[in-house]
Amino acid sequence: MTGKVIEEARPRPGVATRPMTARSRYRLVERLIPILMITPSIIAIAVFVYGFIGWTTVVSVSRWQGIVPDLSFAGFRNYAALLTSYRFQSDIRNTIVFTVFFLIGSLSIGLLLAVLLDSKVRGESFFRTVYLFPMALSFVVTGTVWQWLFTPGAPGQPTGLNLLFEQIGLPVFQTWSTVSHVWPGGGWKPEWLRVPFGVPLAMIPVIIAAIWQMSGFTMAMYLAGLRAIPDELREAARVDGASEWQVFRWITFPLLQPVTLSAVIVLGHISLKIFDLIMTQTGGGPGFATDVPGIFMYETTFKSNKYAEGAAVAIVMLLMVSVLIVPYLIWRLRTETER
């Protein structure tokens, strides 16, 4: 570096500018073109993504709690109000519960379906389409249909699933979608926690609907992963005397790890930002037992016109997703640069 600077700084009598050779001009153009190509998208993303994130952050620490903008600095009082509110605590609990069970459900069912399909069944492509199809539906459709299915009706006049249970003679009457009970509930909890900790029963129908919709997609990812594993590896294990279970446990499963990670990222960011499914299936009720930050953000901002508080919810959501995404991005960056 230093040598080059000195060389350039040295006066060159008789030559004002160094004549550009064809080769160096080519190299310059070669370097400029990619930069020019990505500049518009960089600017657009800087403004429309990061710019608005910054703007939302500014609003979230302001006093803008009405239709007239008031950007005077309010400190972190909006965040403090959120963290102590019944509804937001409920939202955080629900998001954690939903994400955990949705991930476990989708991954295990997706993997199971993929392994079954990979065992060279007849009509594989037909089944693949059948399992993948729910993903083609909108969450709005899924939410509406599953809401009908889980509407319990009255004892003696069951509807939806309860009608099915009655028809096949099962003495079950589920009322999950209409109670705000949290299982196990009760027990010790810290003073600042206003909601019982556990699994809200009303969340179960929502989780089932989400798994129904997304497990086919997970299956497709796993199936692609399975097909990428060379047959030789498994064959070699079999030759060494491994049982089919051992082949799966010690050969296939470890090699599927990158697929699992990608699936966790894709499904995780869906579940942390879920809005449409829950909005149509339960509307966040009963009594916020299925409410999530997305619905809270929408209602606070656009129904109550409390912009600062709504912006604070949006930032908390962003942070939640970042916790999932940023380590993944860093990991990707590392593996790519190491390669």
Binding site: Q65, G66, Y86, R87, V179, S180, G285, P286, G287, F288, A289, E299, T300, K303, S304, N305, K306
Partner: peptide, 26 residues
């Protein structure tokens, strides 16, 4: 509207929980 939202929230929570002290607090 800001009051209406809070009032509605309190009663919807109560409708499911039937916790009278909580309703009063909210």
């Amino acid at each position: 509207e800001a009051y209406m939202t809070e009032y509605n929230n309190a009663l919807n929570v109560f409708s499911a929980s039937r916790d009278k002290d909580q309703l009063k607090g909210m």
